[in-house]
Design a protein around this nucleic acid. Structure first.
Lengths: 128, 128
DNA sequence: TAATTAATTAGGAATGATTACTAATAAGGA
DNA sequence: TCCTTATTAGTAATCATTCCTAATTAATTA
């Protein structure tokens, strides 16, 4: 059976406090300030475990390191090609997507991820 | 200036012959049969180069190795969680997607990728 | 055609995020 | 309090990919 450890609580709190799209490395650095004895492997293992238990959400985007999010509700993402920053994207009528897609014969989908790429306002401004 | 090498031609032909969603490793193995002197770094470098020149398409899906495709036209993908196989997905009215999404203020998108996950027909049949 | 130059190559080393391993530690039930 | 076993710290291993370097070769110029 799973145990409740101080470590797990600290890591969960860190993700909640850091809020959005944080990398494992960011979580580790944040925790390491206050708790320098907590090892990197413990952070990685618990992030995985917390995501498995749906207490946080693991975000795996193409060509990027894994990220974690305190928000459980599903949403899509946009990534800036210049700075690499991740933004949340909402779709007004997501049901519409299911109506228009043509999946392979017999394929049963349980999830989907959309990643928009481009350039964010901040990076666009810098170029002018 | 770029040069035309036999190696590049062999690698391009391999992707065209293998057709869909091939990994760098698959391309290398395929080439290695006929041309055992061609190194892995040459395959990787040329796959990158060919993709940069839009002669093939690089497909980077979350939590997966890079893949390459002879088809240049844009389409989406579905991946089976059991066998890892990649399928093509088409959307009848992709224009509607742009109408319903709410991107961050000032974000200019130039591309997007959709990945559906689930279980394919073949793997579903095996479970029965 | 021969000489020149710079891109390309083979082979192997380096990278970097993540996971695996192992002996020591500690949570929580009996 | 004792006992079982999940968890931990620290480090090694993994794996796709990129980087590095001397040798090679494509293509330009004389």
């Amino acid at each position: 059976m799973k145990r409740n450890t101080i470590h797990k609580e600290i890591i969960l709190n860190a993700v909640n406090e850091l809020a959005c799209h944080v990398t494992s490395e960011t979580v580790y650095d944040y925790i390491h300030e206050k708790y320098p004895h907590i090892s990197k492997s413990t952070v990685y293992r618990n992030l995985r475990s917390l995501a498995d238990d749906n207490l946080i959400k693991k975000i795996t985007l193409p060509g990027d390191v894994d990220r974690f999010d305190h928000i459980i509700i599903s949403h899509y993402h946009a990534r800036c090609n210049e700075c690499g920053k991740i933004f949340d994207v909402t779709i007004k009528t997501p049901d519409h997507l299911e109506d228009t897609i043509v999946l392979p014969e017999g394929f049963q989908t349980d999830n989907h991820e959309i990643l928009f790429t481009g350039i964010c306002k901040s990076c666009l401004d810098k170029k002018r």
